[in-house]
Design a protein around this nucleic acid. Sequence first.
RNA 1: GGAGGGAUGGCCGAGCGGUUUAAGGCGGCGGUCUUGAAAACCGUUGGGCGUUUACGCGCCUCGUAGGUUCGAAUCCUACUCCCUCCGCCA
Length: 426
Amino acid sequence: MLDLRFVRENIDLLKEKLILRGDDLDLTPFIQLEKERRELIQEVEALRSRRNQVSDEISRLKQKKGDASDLISRMRGVSDRIKALEDDLKEKEEWVQAFLLVIPNIPHASVPVGKGDADNKEVRKWGEPPAFAFEPKTHWDIGEALDILDFKAGAKLAGARFTLYKDLGARLERALINFMLDLHINEHGYREMLPPFMVNRDVMIGTGQLPKFAEDLFKIEGLDYYLIPTAEVPVTNIHRDEILDEQDLPIYYCAYTPCFRKEAGSYGKDTRGIIRQHQFNKVELVKFSVPETSYDELEKLLADAEEVLRRLEIHYRVVALCTGDLGFSAAKTYDIEVWLPGQGEYKEISSCSNFEAFQARRAAIRFRREGKKGTELVHTLNGSGLAVGRTVVAILENYQQEDGSVVIPKPLRPYMGGIERIEKKD
RNA sequence: GGAGGGAUGGCCGAGCGGUUUAAGGCGGCGGUCUUGAAAACCGUUGGGCGUUUACGCGCCUCGUAGGUUCGAAUCCUACUCCCUCCGCCA
């Protein structure tokens, strides 16, 4: 959410920025209603001020056993007028608030201008694609041949876009979760969190999933609970409605959670394999920072996520998302795209963003500066460190051997009971 | 699921229809005293909104939302959360 005063005073600038995003929100009704809102506030507050004054007078009179009936009769009805104005004001406040909640964040000045993913800018590449003396297979072929991924069973148990992991497939997923958590906690300075996998509506509004993207979420029928689409949601909201101390910042949290997404509107996309699932595992990095260092923190967070692929020795590239490809709440985003030989393309495996004060304003996450009065909004950041299912995909496709087996990257072997290779059972 | 108890400022805790401007204490901050510190004493103390060049002024905020009243932390209704006991349960 953007600052109300900022929106009011920078309408033209905001319009320009929205166009960069490809958003053509009409701001004119907002300008008018917001003005009416302020006029109403002044009217209602003047009346309330008078009511308070007269009530004091009545009180004083009664104390002295005086007759206040004249004053009382004159005040009769004033509250009804206040009430009527308050109802009107409440309606306008809610309208203004609802409008603010669907305005996307403003892209940072360093974000490349562009319309879609074709305009994203490559920042760097790391490593080399593996050379194969044979035609590399897709992970779904590898996984089925090794009997570690069972798509039919997933469909039977739930439906399309669900998969049953079996034996060393399940073990590999679990090994990756522990490897990633240990790396970030022991070496990158993050605190481990294990949050609820369901959250309420206010929390979803806090990080920006609601009200605009309800169709992407699974909701529990009859209750105010939503399945989380990412750990970003519960973890960022840990400090909702709080005022932190400057010396507490920056705060680094790391959390493993499953993620649940409806994937509405992606019907033809990634239908095979485990690239796009309704449920997948992710290790997430979340930071709270003072505004002046949040972009340094973004670079460090990105490096922390990249480190996972470097340790696993898998080729990837980093792209800076352009203005047209940026998510609703983000001011700047880097995607890490991992090389998938079976598909012959780079695929997003992590998305690292600075939200600046956009989420903090929605969730009321503030901090106090040493020796200064008042509060300021923190900056929030997060990034996948990494998406676990897609890391399994990357390992299967990059470490596949001609005989159909898959070599386990060295750092994962301690987490796999020393197993070095997944081979076909007979 | 059943029965009972509770929610007041950063924390503890009084208030139960009208100078209360939410008492008092703790903590925090500033000061006096002191070589320095402690103690003691004095002062100060949240969040949000509106208005103002500014100093300031006003409004809201006692779990949340309504209601009664000239006036609500206080009375009424609903809801949420927490605690205790019973039942069920990994």
